[in-house]
Design a protein around this nucleic acid. Structure first.
Lengths: 349, 349
DNA sequence: ACTTGTCGAGTAACCGGTTACTACGCCATT
DNA sequence: AATGGCGTAGTAACCGGTTACTCGACAAGT
């Protein structure tokens, strides 16, 4: 109506109420004695002008809690969404705002965001999601860690390998090897001996840790792992579908069960198995990992991960006073959820 | 090591480089002629001190783009996660940070967040998700709209009824009635005449608009809608399961197809149907709405919603110069995705 | 009556940047 | 030699808050 309507400042309120800016600030903060009549005048002026204090300006003069930033590949992946949910909940509970950034896996965007968070004086930066573990990655993270530490932000790695002592970064993760061991043992104790591992991706941390658990469980049962039973496959539905399709078409079926590295892979594999005319669990047993939505819908036995709790733990840790140089990684436990995708072999039934 | 390590400011850099703060600022901004040799000195000091400018301080003196805030019930619901993804992508593309808030449906938290966003000088606040449309709601939103407008933020409602002209709020939504009409027509043209609508929730905007499309399609085919075929049900998996279970147990099955108000409801219903010993689509046809992950896994024919595009559109609209007082609601189109949950009745096959 | 203490409010410095304005040095004119 | 113009760099005001310090008025103490 009347031009760009410059924002209402504390000086406007002071003038309107006929007091000094200091008095307005004090009346609003309430931490300093102000005459009740004066306070009323101030509050009235605040109401009449609809004054809203500028948080940025306040942050300049007084140390206020910074934001919590979370960086994920994408929000529309259940795995990340659950973790993000936990982060947001805990951040809110501790009076922090949550900033979110999706990178689509692009290190450039990750770097840019970390830099932005330094400028924003974020209190914590939480990087989520598995990665290809190589020198480039380690160097990049180490750089982030020091840079963020230097500007007073704390770095938390979620579901990623720790950087080791001496690097100021906190780590929270799932016990992937333990979970993979447990679910493999579950298949073994159901009588399965030839178990196809679907989701090999050498260098990829999540895959590596899960396949390690798989092999360890086999070893514990005196079975040597067969490289021919470890199939490469990316971590998405289509890849699971394609890889399974291929495997079924390739020749004689030399396995009775499938351990898919993730539920999403499992979902694709299930579709391929069904299209091949086979039934689950009668013809093939299958298990997944993660316990994200598709699992329940396809009756998949899988490993449940406390995603949301991971997010919360990350924030708690970041806002704690633990020394990031020496604090050991937190590892969250997992448990098996039994549904209807595994058939008991041999003895009866 | 050496105490709390006060943050490096532009004055420290100036001193270190032996120039004035103005020169440092200008050398970094690059919008003012600075002697190359001087610039080098400055950049060297910046590097040596690892100086990071304070974005909050800068925002005080120069008008910088504000953040985009998104408010959802929860991030770990596919519907919201997809929209949030779109919001984040578009915000990042337009150089804005994304703030996220989950309310768990609590109006208190919503209000608190809106207030915080005013203090933060957010550029846009995007409220997502269906609601119970009543006076309380309308008043609350109208208050938000004026409050945000007064402090220079723009309010966008996503998937919510518009507040009408005269209230400064932008609206983006899906054509729910159109989509529901189309999918109902799909069932009708497959020969179904008795279609159970699962997900009645009077007052709930999403439900209301979808049921309206359902009824309209029936009417177009000269069928009067039967209240006995409209079943109440909350918008979650368990409710879908329970409602369907109940319905199947209740008595003679007087429908050949089910239109679930959401895919999540459909997923629960599918489980109930299967547990009842019936097969899909042979015994019962079913369709859903939303096209979120469970749909593909259970082979559900459903209505695809451009979720991510909704998020992007919301941000674009918010950052545009459109007048929120008069700009009409944007309505995004939908389309049917045919999978394998509908059987053609009567004529052949 | 004079000192002292307390209460409430104002003045001004400060947070960490940006930038309008000023000042200085040097070269080209006249 | 005096003047004007240009290119750099410095000074200080400003953004919008908070708060240390100061000050005046009034009540209590001796």
């Amino acid at each position: 109506m009347s031009g760009p309507a410059r924002r209402v400042t504390i000086r406007d309120v002071a003038k309107h109420a006929g007091v000094s800016v200091a008095t307005v600030s004090r009346a609003l903060a309430g931490d300093y004695p102000v005459q009740p009549s004066t306070r009323r005048k101030v509050l009235r002026a605040v109401r009449e002008l609809d004054y809203v204090p500028n948080a940025q300006a306040r942050a300049l003069s007084v140390a206020s809690p910074g934001a919590v930033a979370i960086v994920v590949n994408s929000v529309n992946t259940a795995y990340y969404a659950y973790i993000a949910q936990g982060v947001e909940e805990q951040a809110a509970a501790e009076g922090r705002l949550s900033l979110i950034c999706t990178t689509g896996g692009d290190p450039e965007r990750e770097l840019a965001f970390v830099q932005t968070m330094r400028e924003q004086r974020a209190e914590a930066v939480i990087l989520v999601g598995s990665v290809i573990l190589d020198d480039d990655y380690l160097q990049r993270m180490t750089r982030y860690a020091h840079a963020l530490a230097a500007s007073g932000s704390r770095l938390v790695l979620c579901s990623r390998p720790p950087l080791g002592e001496g690097v100021p970064a906190l780590t929270v993760g799932f016990d992937n090897t333990g979970g993979a061991h447990a679910i493999t043992a579950h298949l073994l104790s159901a009588g399965h001996r030839r178990i196809l591992y679907l989701g090999l991706r050498p260098g990829h941390t999540t895959s590596d840790t899960r396949v390690a658990g798989y092999r360890a469980a086999l070893a514990d049962h005196g079975i040597e792992h067969d490289p021919a039973l470890e199939t490469r496959c990316d971590f998405d539905r289509r890849s699971g579908y394609t890889a399974m399709k291929q495997r079924l078409a390739d020749g004689p079926r030399d396995f009775t069960a499938v351990f898919a590295a993730t539920d999403v892979i499992a979902a694709g594999a299930v579709q391929a198995i069904r299209e091949h005319g086979l039934r689950i669990p009668d013809d093939i047993s299958i298990v997944g990992y993660d316990d994200v939505p598709p699992a329940e819908d396809i009756g998949l036995t899988t490993v449940h991960l406390p995603h949301t709790e991971l997010g919360r733990a990350a924030v708690r840790l970041a806002l704690s006073s633990k020394d990031p140089l020496t604090e050991p990684p937190i590892m969250l436990g997992t448990h098996i959820v039994v549904r209807s995708s595994v058939k008991r072999l041999g003895s009866g039934r």
